[in-house]
């Protein structure tokens, strides 16, 4: 299936494997301690969430404020399964089952609501996520507001690495395929896209399903790393958090989302020492960034390897071709 023939492709795979091996080594040498590992986990989960939301909002142009809702489906499904049958196999089963449930919900919610445009869709998805949260608050199997304690931790660096790079690669590939271009054409001009033979509803739903599926995976990874989940973790604020990463990185830029996930983790660990004003500073940062760089770090451009050579170039892009 895979076409690895060209040298560039091989280089990429080598770089990926090397990243995995180095981090794994540092983990086993305990240079990466629990605290750093938790941060790294958060970053990976946020990358999955942001990249998948970017597919929906940045590339397909469908404004969603309910991504945390999909995440919670994955988290609860996986948590409930591994609490009953604690084993690595049931972790993976739970993870995929959670992702499938999330995708299913994405389909069910997406089909009728995707006719809505812009803000209306945003509000509808927000409402959907709130409904999910309230349902989880009231079910017995989810233990209501008290939440669930998961005693075993299955999420480790190997799984994180596989699912994070997997999500990034598959979504990037998707965007660079004809199907991905169909999604992008919807963002650009829905009426023209439809007139050029694109079934816009179908591609909106596809973007929604893929996005929800990945969010489900992220939720499952979260549940089996941090031991504890409750409905309020997946509320409006969490959806906003994900959206902020996407917008900060640049709508329509995968590398931007990844960069922003790292940046935000950095900021939040710096702010850890000021718990009282942490959120205030976060809020001010948001406002300031939007005032001075509303298109995000990357705009809709992608960071390429050559761009690393001239890091200064990022700032020259300011006058580039962003929207």
């Amino acid at each position: 299936m895979k076409k690895l023939a060209d040298i560039k492709g091989i280089k990429k795979w080598v770089a990926l494997l090397l990243t995995y091996a180095v981090v794994q080594l540092l983990v086993s040498l305990n240079i990466i301690n629990d605290y750093i590992m938790a941060t790294l986990t958060t970053i990976c989960i946020n990358i999955i969430l942001a990249v998948s939301l970017n597919l929906i909002t940045g590339f397909t142009g469908q404004f969603s404020l309910g991504h945390a809702g999909f995440m919670s489906i994955g988290a609860y499904t996986c948590a409930i399964i591994i609490m009953r049958y604690p084993s690595p196999v049931s972790f993976i089963t739970g993870l995929f089952l959670g992702a499938i449930f999330a995708a299913l919900l994405g389909f069910i919610v997406g089909l009728p609501t995707l006719r809505l445009r812009g803000d209306y869709l945003a509000i509808a998805t927000l409402g959907m996520a709130e409904i999910i949260r309230i349902v989880f608050l009231n079910l017995d199997i989810t233990n209501g507001a008290a939440g669930l304690f998961i005693e075993v931790q299955y999420t480790n660096w190997l799984w994180l690495f596989i699912f994070t790079t997997g999500t990034v690669i598959l979504i990037t590939n998707f965007i660079n395929s004809s199907h991905g271009r169909a999604c992008i054409s919807i963002r650009e001009d829905e009426i023209a896209a439809e007139a050029m033979g694109i079934n816009t509803t179908k591609y909106k739903v596809i973007a929604f399903i893929i996005g929800a599926f990945c969010a489900g995976i992220a939720g499952a990874l979260y549940a089996s790393y941090f031991y504890f989940i409750k409905p309020d973790l997946f509320g409006f604020l969490k959806s906003i958090d994900i959206l902020v990463i996407v917008v900060l990185g640049g709508l329509g830029s995968i590398s931007g989302s990844i960069l922003a996930a790292f940046l935000l983790a950095l900021i939040s660990s710096l702010l850890q020492s000021f718990p009282e004003i942490r959120m205030v500073i976060y809020a001010v940062l948001l406002i300031v960034i939007m005032l001075f760089r509303p298109q995000g770090i990357m705009g809709s451009k992608e960071l390429s390897l050559s761009a690393f050579k001239s890091l200064g170039g990022i700032f020259e892009r300011r006058n580039g071709g962003e929207r």
Binding site: T57, F63, G118, D119, A122, I240, L243, V244, V247, L251, E276, I277, M279, V280, Y282, A283, V284, L285, L286, I287, M290, L291, P294, Q295, R323
Partner: peptide, 26 residues
């Protein structure tokens, strides 16, 4: 942000909202 994208203004509004909430809390 009068001429910025809708989403940028929306994020700003969310920022203002958080600022008011947590500023008040402080």
């Amino acid at each position: 942000l009068r001429n910025a994208t809708r989403i940028a203004v929306l994020i700003t509004a969310i920022g203002v909202s958080l600022f008011l909430e947590y500023g008040t809390m402080f």
